[in-house]
Design a protein around this nucleic acid. Sequence first.
DNA 1: GCCGTTTTCGGCCCGACTGTTTTCAGTCG
Length: 576
Amino acid sequence: MAAKMDNREVAAILYEVADLLEIKGVGFKPVAYRRAAHVIETLTEDLAKVCGRDELEELPGIGTHIATKIREILKKGSLAYLDRLRQEVGPGVRELAGIAGIGPKKAMVLHQKLGIDSIDALEAAAREGKIRIIAGFGEKSEKNILAEIAARKGRAARFLLGDMLPVAEKIRSALALLPEVRQISPAGSIRRMKETIGDIDILAAAHEGSAEAVMAAFTSLPEVDRVLGSGPTKSSVVLASGVQVDLRVVSEEQYGTALQYFTGSKDHNIALRRRALDRGWSLSEYGVKETKTGTNLPVTGEEDLYRMLGLPFIEPELRENRGEIEAAEKGTLPSVVPYDAVRGDLHLHTNRGDGEDPVRELAAAAKARGYGYIAVCDHAESPGIPRGLNPEKIAQQQKEIEAVNRELDGLVVLHGIECSIGPDGSLNLPAKVLGDLDLVIASVHSLLRMEAKEMTERVTAALHNDHVDVLGHPAGRLLLKREPAALDLPAVFEAAAGLGIALEINGSPSRMDLPDSGCRKAREYGARFALGSDAHASAALRQMALAAATARRGWVSADEIVNTRSPADLRAWLGR
DNA sequence: GCCGTTTTCGGCCCGACTGTTTTCAGTCG
């Protein structure tokens, strides 16, 4: 029996087919395979279920041929067509195309002329000066290849959004001070608030003829380690931290369409361009023009552009071509939670637990942010958990919170706890203690590699504990470090929704958990969400933005989130 | 290989930058 294939594994096979076809020089098929792969990758339902209903061909981008191949993959766990392509193209060629500056064409040439089939072989050939003699390559390309191979050895492939937001803001604000710069904004995946990003994109509008000055200022910023390229509209640099930053400069008139264009995603933009083509227009970063006459149509900004295409404004966080354009067209796009709609933070750690600051300080910082309440949720004592609280310490914390609440006006501190879910679904505090607390978060902190069935039973059992209010970081992933736990999330969503338990959206930069795709799926079950920064210091309260961004990317609206409610309504929900 | 308020055949997103070239292909986003 073949191993069960999940959507991501099926998509990976189709992506590889697309790459290999492209290396072979086949036209258009790669686009088709890539589109199908993307549809599958972003599908919220298990592909095997769609296949079981015989509805594969109804998915956009999937026709009879690709559907047949998907059925083979689901049945056998492999695809004969791919195996054949691998043999034809040769091993390692796809890997070569992953080097910056080498694409499918050059990878194939390197393989055919020099027999290069790995990055190591490429490096050796470049060192020996064998590459410069091939037509289409030169000394410069050889040097660039070596530089790129050296650079990628010490560089992370992707970066955490939470780490990069301050970096982007620093560059943005430095360039905003230039007299030539009229408008400036982050763009790309950082503006879409994607959990991890590959590079930082920044877009600026400058006075006519002053782009060069802006570029010169950009490439000579103190954080810049090396300049990859610089022209009048586009420059790329690498910072000392290894992250690449791209700056584009356009005129003020072009800023709106350019901001839309450079925010992406690529797939969202391609879909929009198709839409423009249907209307007889051609869409680019510089505006909209009539295909036939070449006349430019005036566009005042992003909102205007979407309006021209017959759509309401689509928030940047939604622009992933995951059905947002179709939903916008039908008017079924939810109004996603505004960042300022969050009225309190439901997951904070204090210095009695493994946090840094006392309750009083956290409360002051929360009040300064305009919150009406916070929930202090230190860890309950448990093996492997640093500085967990036992019942005695919980009682002491209760006195501290009562004192702070007496002093404070306009902010309520709730006394909560973050319990660990044991292997059998039990919690590590007795019911008597839990019953006295305002809010109980239950989270899995150990044995994350359990089998899916066991893990699902474990989490579901914990949800049936009468005292649990919130399921903490439900997927159990650590971004760039650990894959999500094997867990039947839809089953968990259904149970949580039925029991009135909220799913946490945790704003820790390495968690952002429940992930956006999970949020979207959970909404189908009528689930409720609780946003928490998981701050371990008052400065980290700003991590709430990462939680809110995840909710937005998951199409979650304010009324589906418990901590957009007033203090009284939140209390009512906690006492449900 | 997919798809259709111009199409069941003939299209398939668009422009900048680089390095190699004497006018452009390849790559990238």
